[in-house]
Design a protein around this nucleic acid. Structure first.
Length: 818
RNA sequence: GCCGAGGUGGCGGAAUUGGCAGACGCGCCGGUCUCAAAAACCGGUGGAGGUAACUCUAUGCGGGUUCGACUCCCGCCCUCGGCACCA
């Protein structure tokens, strides 16, 4: 039999016809399995790197179907977003049209690969029936105080002319266009994800089947640290400056304070200050420093003395207050106590400006006073610390914190690096934020029954820094839902990550009109059993989705705390050592592969290319190998049809060997799939089995029935990887119906037993000979037989081994020396 | 700087409660078929030495534990990914 494109088409139509992937969510006749792949962002057609994601997902779905699960494998489009709008500006095509063109193209591609989805559950985030519910979520968050607007310094991309979330700033540059990100103060909408920081951190422990590295990345991103907020009284005023520190044990060495340029107290500090002008100029200067220079290794620390002093509440000494460019205003209190002896940054600063350096922590082994050119950042024993001297850092942290809380000079506190999620975008192609501004009533949420706030279709696409919606009168002019007076709509739209933070719930009931989803069904089908996608979503998407899921949990709409039970992150496919991209011209398009070799060849190669969680280099020649293998497997069918041999003795060793290989392969392939999706090794084991079948046939001692069984097993095992040829073969072998409605093969341990094996004979750890043994032999017998080997005798030269080590049925080591 | 993953033939990669390193595939070499070539099929293929049986050597580097180490321990080097003045 030859593999052809017609075979692909035939079986793709067949699966549609028998509704292999269509799921009735109410059907509970079989255990459920929710297999989810990360949706495509429809910005261009897909290349083989994308294909990996969907082919892995499809292989898993098909395998689970064969294991008897009701498998839900849906597909959707993350259709809002900047690229569509940028195309609109560049090529004068409406984002909607552009997006739908891409969707149609991608759909075609997905179908041509034989990846199966329940298309009845298709979801599209740019359609009102979906974004209505995204807006609904916003309102729910708003009503609980979890969506709010505030003026905040934001990351501004001068090219995209929009605000970026912290997570979208990569190394000081825009994630999308790599422009230098600027700092700007704007009124923006936020989601209060920080309220969930502790739970987002703690519940990572519930996610046993997530890759450790992803959990660690999330942990670092949340960045929890425990410490103390210390109150430093301002000299000569009834004010205080609060500073957060994780090293309260170093408090006696705090010799100055440093504030960020926008610390609220600076206004007070510069009042009637003779240095006022100088300070204001300095602030103006660091305020305008671009974001990225902070990331440079040689970032120059600069500061200015305010002329004012605070009191160190432990030493009661006056310490100068400085303003410095290395203090983050967004973290802690925007002010820090500086301990130059034990912090590299404070040390550099103190050296530059001649500030006092006092050693208060001494490394445990050290006896003498440290020379002041050295910073010791570790923990140790306290010195120069009053009654706390002599304690080690750990004890001192507790005792000093206790002391501070008792005397009201400080309080234990937990801080997080996680910031609130900035969701405003000054862009058109996104979900409108359902808020109205009324002259009388102020900020008013759009009532639920008035949703959706429709995104107008006719707009001008000019990147002005304002949302194009600003210029659409019919859109912005509206009535206040509260007083009926004239009002204006919010013109910002939501970050597309909001759209994608809840789609996995919508799939269950995509057409539901009264609610975002049906709780009863969602509670049955979720959490997602297997989520598959790129590691680039380790932080953003997965954090946001977990947050929104927890919010729904709090609303009582769902009964599970985490949305994704198991996560698999697949590696990238690279070409010529680089990520595939149009600009580099190294994109491998699946279309020609499908045309030349057929879908199963591409699928097989993508799964065989390497461990799926690791990056892999694409080589066209690899396809040839897979194509050869498929031809080789199919040739077995031709051989079978002409095969005559029967009446072979049941105990024929070649028969037994083939049976053993078959069952062994079933066992191993199953293990590979049940473990961490080791498709590459699973496939190589099937290749071994096929090689073994050919060798067995050469002996002429295999019965037709066993031959048939062996081929049948091969195709059952291959079905998740190469579904088209497997269906075809299944039919040729005389089985009725779809191969996916058959059971995954199971192995019988009795066939795995061996009567005879070859073991290695080692002399002093070096491989010297092999020996065929009966598996029933005792160790003594094995040693005897080994010693009688000519080769072994030559090595031992008559001297018996001093010790022997026997690993049953594997290795015998004969030791002659000490 | 901190955190994480990794380093095995010409290449992608196998092998883990420590037990025959290099499965499977690519590439390369040889053969069969052919007027010839391609395809296909069969065989070989870590390196060095030897006509050969065989010997030595080999999993980033250096030590250690062990009868035995790709695997465990100590100390380095390199590559990739994440975070990065988080007080």
């Amino acid at each position: 039999m030859n593999y052809s494109k017609e075979i692909d088409k035939k079986w793709q139509d067949y699966w549609k016809e028998i509704k292999l992937f269509n799921v009735d969510v109410k059907d509970k006749s079989k255990p459920k399995y929710y297999c989810l792949v990360m949706f495509p962002y429809p910005s261009s057609e897909l290349h083989v790197g994308h294909a990996r994601n969907y082919i892995i997902g499809d292989a898993v779905a098909r395998y689970k179907i064969m294991r008897g699960y009701k498998v839900l494998s849906p597909m959707r489009w993350d259709a809002f977003g900047l690229p569509a709008e940028n195309q609109a500006i560049k090529h004068n095509i409406h984002p909607k049209k552009w997006t739908f063109n891409n969707i149609n193209r991608i759909k075609e591609q997905l179908n041509s690969w034989g990846t199966g989805y329940d298309w009845d559950k298709e979801v599209n985030s740019c359609l009102p029936e979906y974004y209505k519910w995204t807006q609904w979520i916003f309102l729910k968050l708003y009503s609980r105080g979890l969506a709010y607007k505030k003026e905040a310094p934001v990351n501004w991309c001068p090219r995209c002319l929009t605000v970026l979330a912290n997570e979208q700033v990569i190394g000081g540059k825009c994630e999308r266009c790599s422009s230098e990100v600027e700092q700007k103060k704007l009124k923006q909408w936020f989601f209060r994800i920080t309220d969930y920081a502790e739970r987002l951190l703690k519940d990572l422990d519930l996610l046993e089947d997530w890759p450790e590295r992803v959990k660690i990345m999330q942990k670092n991103w949340i960045g929890r640290s425990e410490g103390v907020e210390i109150y430093f009284p301002l000299k000569g005023a009834q004010l205080r400056i609060n500073c957060f520190t994780t090293r309260v044990d170093t408090i006696f060495g705090a010799t100055f304070l440093a504030l960020s340029w926008d610390h609220p107290l600076i206004e007070v500090l510069v009042q009637n200050n003779p240095k006022r002008e100088e300070i204001v100029n300095f602030i103006e200067k660091i305020k305008n420093q671009p974001y990225s220079i902070r990331l440079l290794d040689n970032f120059e620390k600069e500061g200015i003395f305010t002329g004012k002093f605070a009191i160190n509440p432990m030493t009661n000494k006056e310490i100068p207050i400085w303003i410095a460019n290395y203090i983050l205003s967004e973290y802690g209190t925007g002010a820090i106590m500086c301990v130059p002896a034990h912090d590299r940054r404070d040390f550099d600063f103190a050296k530059k400006y001649g500030l006092p350096i006092v050693e208060v922590i001494r490394a445990p082994q050290k006896k003498e006073e440290a020379p002041l050119e050295e910073v010791y950042e570790g923990e140790g024993v306290l010195v120069n610390s009053g009654e706390f001297s002599g304690l080690n850092s750990q004890e001192a942290k507790e005792k000093i914190a206790d002391f501070m809380e008792k005397n009201d000079i400080g309080k234990r506190k937990v801080n997080y690096k996680l910031r609130d999620w900035l969701i405003s975008r000054q862009r058109y192609w996104g979900t409108p934020i359902p808020i109205v501004y009324c002259d009388k009533c102020g900020e008013v949420p759009v009532p639920e029954e008035q949703l959706p706030v429709l995104l107008p279709e006719k707009v001008e696409f000019l990147p002005t820094g304002q949302s194009p919606l600003t210029y659409v009168e019919e859109f912005i002019k509206t009535r206040c839902p509260r007083c009926g007076g004239s009002a204006l709509r919010e013109t910002d739209t939501m970050d597309t990550f909001v759209d994608s933070s809840w789609y996995y719930l919508r799939y269950i009931s995509p057409k539901e009109e009264k609610s975002p989803f049906v709780s009863e069904d969602v509670n049955y089908w979720l959490p997602v059993d297997q989520y598959i996608g790129g590691v680039e979503h380790a932080i953003l998407h997965l954090m946001y989705a977990r947050f929104i899921n927890k919010f729904f949990y709090d609303l009582g709409l769902i009964n599970f705390k985490e949305p994704f039970r198991r996560l698999f992150t697949q590696g990238m496919i690279v070409k010529d050592g680089a990520k595939m991209s149009k600009s580099k011209g190294n994109v491998v398009s699946p279309d020609y592969i499908i045309d030349t070799y057929g879908a199963d060849t591409m699928r097989l190669y993508i799964l065989f290319i390497g461990p799926p969680q690791k990056d892999a280099e694409w080589h066209d020649e690899g396809l040839l190998g897979c194509s050869r293998f498929i031809a080789r497997v199919l040739r077995l069918l031709d051989l079978l049809s002409q095969y005559k041999k029967n009446n072979v003795d049941k105990d024929n060793p070649h028969q037994k060997l083939l049976l053993r290989k078959m069952h062994h392969t079933i066992k191993e392939v199953t293990q590979d799939l049940e473990g961490n999706f080791q498709f590459n090794t699973a496939i190589s084991r099937i290749m071994e089995l096929v090689n073994h079948i050919y060798k067995s046939l050469d002996t002429g001692q295999i019965s037709k029935e066993l031959f048939r069984q062996a081929i049948d097993t091969v195709f059952l095992l291959l079905a998740p990887f190469t579904p088209h040829i497997s269906e075809e073969a299944n039919k040729i072998l005389g089985n009725s119906g779809s191969i996916f409605h058959r059971n995954w093969p199971s192995y019988d341990p009795k066939y795995l037993e061996q009567e005879e094996v070859e073991i290695a004979i080692l002399i002093d750890g070096k491989l010297r000979a092999h020996l065929k043994i009966d598996t029933q032999w005792s160790e003594k017998k094995v040693v005897e037989e080994a010693l009688s080997l000519e080769k072994v005798k030559n090595y031992l030269k008559g001297a018996p081994p001093k010790k022997t080590f026997y690993i049953k049925n594997k290795v015998l080591n004969l030791v002659t020396n000490g």
